[in-house]
Write a protein that binds this DNA or RNA. Structure first.
Lengths: 340, 340
DNA sequence: CTGAAAGCGCTAACAT
DNA sequence: ATGTTAGCGCTTTCAG
């Protein structure tokens, strides 16, 4: 690599090439119609020789185009979200954009604060895995500043572009599969619903399936990730309440599954003899847990991330107003021994 | 929220407050010595009233201070790294910085490309989970541009600030524990080493332990994450080769562990009767895999991330040259049934 | 205590 | 085909 002095500017290049800054700027922006082949060649040569790289801050100041996309994630340590971020990041990079990330930890105020700060950086778009409590705020941002795409979690009523999995269909199909297997009682375990769109939708689909498929009253259990003790109690309750029936637990997401499996393990219950289990999110370890794996719904995390970016880019190009659209990416049920 | 027109600038605030832009700028930068209490009060009021927020691009252009830290991660879908990123992101946000993330996918060229692009954005520092093949390049960046801290993976010879876990000690301690338990043969399973510092160190520590603790020849097995079939074969080889001895597998990281467990499961081997297993990275599912969990070394991922940021901030404040330092964060051995 | 003016590096009218 | 000029929004001398 050529030794480059601290800060070469467009002016240095212009001087060396014996043309004006304008011509260099035109070159950088690919407007080759406005210069001779000779100039073009010469400029290219000099830029390489000087190892010149344009300052994006300066470019951005003029155009308010930072080449930055802001991403707000509720919990990036959750593998579902980290793969989502991977999809977002890889795809942004392909478009020549960088990704500004913040971890909101499901905190409504942080979500706002970080978004404002990202706007200060002139991000060109925002991908938000929202807490669900910032709808008005987000509308204001979208109206006055930049396009927003919701990742994974929808809001109600639907007012933003949203990219998500086909949760409702997946839930109902899975419960239908359980019913076919002879499970007459299916309990729904979830993290506290709050306003998390994904959880709400899965819960409603569960209720619908109870009504239309199982023809039972819904049996719903809310348990936080840290509440190990409560998880044990709830699993016990569910088992006791359905004595004598073939029963299965349906877990609304991966961390809840982890929580329940720990409880089942502590309680010494056998899967699937004492209790069957399945639910959202498929992870590698599910292949060899229990005697022969856990039945799971595989989510298209990476694809959701990639699609969020495509949608933002689409919005950035179409500088006309676009109606909010919900894009559903298909999931896949992986059947294993836990629903044996 | 007050309705704010598209772009309020410092000039608008100045006009409304009846002072010059300079005074507003001074206010924004906390230089209150240079204005009357009256001015200060008035400006504060007007800023809130107008909902003014400074443009960070413009600020950055003058000062070359973007309030951005660049982060290069080899594989953000790996939970170890996603928690590392969480530590980085949370801590940066506390310092008022944002995080620019790129996923290099362990690709040397991408690592370079993204770093250059981040420099174009005037990141103020770089946290790199390096492939190990960019030492010269990184030195050049640090010399001409911004401070670098290596996250998790050291390079040799050591020329950068590095924050990592105490891999060497952890490896040796764990193997000593295995020896005490009567395991006379311990095999080392790892992803291909390449120049990944973490892997090199763990391998060397394993060799040292073979020599000093177990007094056997090292038995090393390299297997890529995707090579399911090879994993099975290698596990079989290891078992066959040590017929009649009490044997354990030591896995160099979490994904390798996953790979081996799948192989063990497919082969129908029992843990720990046929084969014991333990290794780096502790995950929630390890508690209930096998009959009674997997013995694992817990890594301080979040803490490593947080410390990387502290170190960068320290370097940013000390504008004098600082000697590269390696900071080791302690790990913790969690003993479970797999080394029964 | 305050302001005028120059300039960070780049882009985009508006010439020619 | 190319250059002149005026900013983008902010910070920072320098001069009161």
């Amino acid at each position: 690599m050529e030794k480059d002095k601290a800060n070469i500017t467009i002016a240095d290049v212009a001087t060396r090439a014996g043309v004006s800054k304008t011509t260099i700027s035109r070159y950088l922006n690919g407007k080759f119609e406005f210069m001779s082949g000779e100039s073009k060649r010469r400029i290219q040569e000099i830029i390489e020789e000087m190892n010149y790289r344009p300052n994006k801050l300066a470019r951005g100041l003029k155009s308010s185009k930072s080449k930055l996309i802001g991403v707000l994630i509720s919990d990036i340590s959750n593998p579902f979200f980290s793969i989502l971020v991977q999809g977002i990041s890889d795809t942004c990079n392909q478009y020549g954009y960088h990704v500004l990330i913040a971890n909101t930890n499901n905190d409504t105020d942080k979500e706002q604060e970080y978004i404002l700060s990202m706007i200060d950086q002139r991000v060109e778009g925002l991908i938000v895995n929202t807490t669900g409590y910032n709808n008005e705020f987000l509308q204001d941002i979208e109206k006055n500043h930049v396009p927003i795409v919701l990742a994974d979690r929808p809001v109600f009523p639907n007012m933003f572009d949203t990219v998500k999995s086909d949760d409702s269909r997946a839930t109902i199909d899975t419960i239908r599969y359980l019913a076919d297997k002879g499970f007459s009682r299916v309990g729904f375990f979830t993290e506290p619903i709050n306003r998390v769109g994904t959880r709400i939708i899965r819960q409603q689909a569960y209720r619908q399936a109870c009504n239309e498929v199982l023809q039972i009253e819904p049996q719903e259990y809310e348990v936080g990730v840290k509440e190990k003790h409560l998880a044990q109690k709830l699993v016990q309750d569910f088992v006791a309440r359905n004595e004598g029936h073939k029963k299965a637990i349906f877990s609304a997401n991966g961390v809840t599954m982890l929580n329940i499996l720990e409880a089942i393990h502590s309680l010494g219950l056998r899967i699937p003899e004492d209790i069957a289990i399945c639910g959202f999110e498929n992870w590698p370890w599910m292949e060899f847990v229990g005697s022969s794996g856990i039945t799971a719904i595989e989510l298209p995390s990476y694809g959701i991330g990639a699609e969020c970016v495509s949608r933002i880019m689409f919005r950035l190009e179409a500088n006309t107003k676009v109606n909010p659209e919900t894009i559903e990416i298909p999931t896949k049920l992986i059947i294993r021994g836990s629903t044996g």
